[in-house]
Simulated assay, not measured.
Amino acid sequence: MSVPVGNVTFEPGCRNNWHIHHGGSQILLVTGGEGWYQEAGRPAQRLKPGDVVIAHDGVKHWHGAAKDSWFSHLAITTGTSEWLEPVTDQEYFALSEEAENDNSH
């Protein structure tokens, strides 16, 4: 069985589309910068180096950089990926504003 590993880097503000893994899952190992991971219907998680996220089989999600930081992770993916609609600017920038408000306390 082949298990691809990708070394992925996002420039500030860059994110991938919503997607789902079928017949497998994806493990993200954060190696640099700050970014986001979000599953459909759940709050986004702010990510930093050392964080590990598992996107389980059939779970719609996206990940990418914070608006003000580069973001790198290793992506270990099994199964097939189904690419869906983009994360809208409205969805994305609302997350960044929420995080900034949380950090100001």
Score class of each variant (00 low, 15 high):
residue 63 H to L: 02
residue 36 W to K: 08
residue 13 G to K: 00
residue 88 T to I: 03
residue 46 R to S: 07
residue 39 E to F: 05
residue 26 Q to M: 13
residue 43 P to Q: 14
residue 6 G to H: 10
residue 42 R to H: 13
residue 92 Y to L: 02
residue 102 D to Y: 09
residue 83 W to P: 05
residue 88 T to H: 08
residue 62 W to C: 03
residue 35 G to E: 02
residue 48 K to W: 02
residue 69 S to M: 00
residue 21 H to L: 12
residue 24 G to I: 10
residue 97 E to Y: 07
residue 56 H to V: 13
residue 12 P to D: 06
residue 60 K to Y: 01
residue 44 A to P: 03
residue 76 I to A: 04
residue 46 R to Y: 07
residue 67 K to L: 04
residue 80 T to N: 11
residue 96 S to W: 00
residue 30 V to L: 11
residue 50 G to W: 03
residue 99 A to V: 08
residue 99 A to P: 01
residue 46 R to C: 12
residue 8 V to T: 14
residue 41 G to F: 08
residue 54 I to R: 14
residue 92 Y to R: 05
residue 19 H to G: 05
residue 42 R to Q: 15
residue 59 V to T: 12
residue 74 L to I: 06
residue 48 K to Y: 07
residue 79 G to Q: 09
residue 104 S to L: 09
residue 22 H to G: 11
residue 22 H to D: 07
residue 11 E to H: 06
residue 47 L to M: 07
residue 20 I to A: 13
residue 28 L to N: 08
residue 83 W to K: 12
residue 42 R to M: 11
residue 34 E to L: 00
residue 80 T to Y: 12
residue 67 K to T: 01
residue 34 E to H: 01
residue 47 L to E: 04
residue 17 N to K: 04
residue 82 E to T: 08
residue 105 H to K: 10
residue 3 V to W: 08
residue 47 L to A: 13
residue 35 G to P: 02
residue 41 G to E: 07
residue 32 G to I: 04
residue 24 G to L: 03
residue 45 Q to Y: 04
residue 4 P to N: 15
residue 47 L to Y: 04
residue 91 E to P: 15
residue 104 S to T: 05
residue 22 H to W: 09
residue 52 V to M: 15
residue 57 D to V: 05
residue 4 P to K: 12
residue 13 G to H: 01
residue 49 P to W: 07
residue 91 E to I: 06
residue 80 T to A: 06
residue 96 S to Y: 02
residue 53 V to L: 12
residue 103 N to C: 10
residue 71 F to D: 00
residue 25 S to P: 03
residue 33 G to Q: 07
residue 76 I to K: 06
residue 26 Q to L: 15
residue 7 N to M: 06
residue 45 Q to E: 14
residue 31 T to I: 12
residue 102 D to S: 03
residue 66 A to L: 03
residue 99 A to T: 13
residue 39 E to Q: 13
residue 24 G to Q: 13
residue 51 D to L: 02
residue 36 W to P: 03
residue 93 F to M: 05
residue 8 V to Y: 03
